[in-house]
Design a protein around this nucleic acid. Structure first.
Lengths: 115, 115
DNA sequence: CCTAGTACCTTGTATAACAGAGTACCTTCT
DNA sequence: AGAAGGTACTCTGTTATACAAGGTACTAGG
């Protein structure tokens, strides 16, 4: 119940960061991203991914171009804008700080947890 | 704008986890926690912490007892229940998995990012 | 009394993920 | 042609959450 929720919350915060990272590697479209995120055990579904992509585009962090598919409807291939790369750097920094802070709190536990 | 939001989102997900950790170390009351979280650079305010504590209590993860203060109103000293410790273990596991997945995605970038 | 400080609580608002249903395009088969 | 099935993108409604801001209550000191 509550714990699953907390686990979901953890993932949430990192999602945008991971998505930006994936796009930064090269042009991809939504289904590619879903595959990568699933492979990395970040359970994400369409209904979550698409709104994020729209948000990132409106914020000017990503852009896309339509590309014909060899089979099926055309695809939106996303890439990072210069602003997007800057933002990614900031988020990377935040991630490291956060990981450090968290590990600090966690390790603290084990030290003082011993009576 | 958008980036600050993403940074806030990252912190959010880890908050409950950190709070449980802090409580697991020994009995503390809200102001103690705020100090610790601030020291670890997790910006949290009262209006965020109290609802979380209430939620954790309703979920049966923490319990508290009133203790008189040497100066001022009485304090609620929180401690973890057995269920709380179990949940903490699960969250710790989730945290490690998530950190691993994220680092996997990040490192992937740097490898393929080199042209 | 009255003020100041500490501790806890509550209400309203904005944001975000998710489920689920929907639209549009392309290919293949009859 | 027309129908069926798959792929890709979109939208709406629900729920959960952090945060800001204001509020209540208890204690100590002038």
């Amino acid at each position: 119940m509550n714990i699953e929720n907390a686990q979901i919350q953890m993932r949430k915060g990192i999602l945008e960061f991971c998505i930006l990272h994936i796009i930064s590697r090269g042009e991809v479209y939504a289904t590619n991203m879903l595959e990568e995120l699933t492979a990395a055990h970040m359970m994400v579904v369409e209904g979550t991914l698409y709104p994020i992509l729209t948000r990132l585009k409106n914020a000017g962090l990503v852009e896309y171009k339509w590309v014909e598919s060899p089979s099926g409807p055309p695809r939106k291939y996303y890439s990072l804008t210069p602003t997007g790369f800057e933002s990614l750097d900031k988020l990377r920094e935040t991630w490291h700080e956060l990981a450090t802070s968290t590990n600090q709190i966690i390790n603290h536990t084990q030290l003082t947890g011993q009576s």
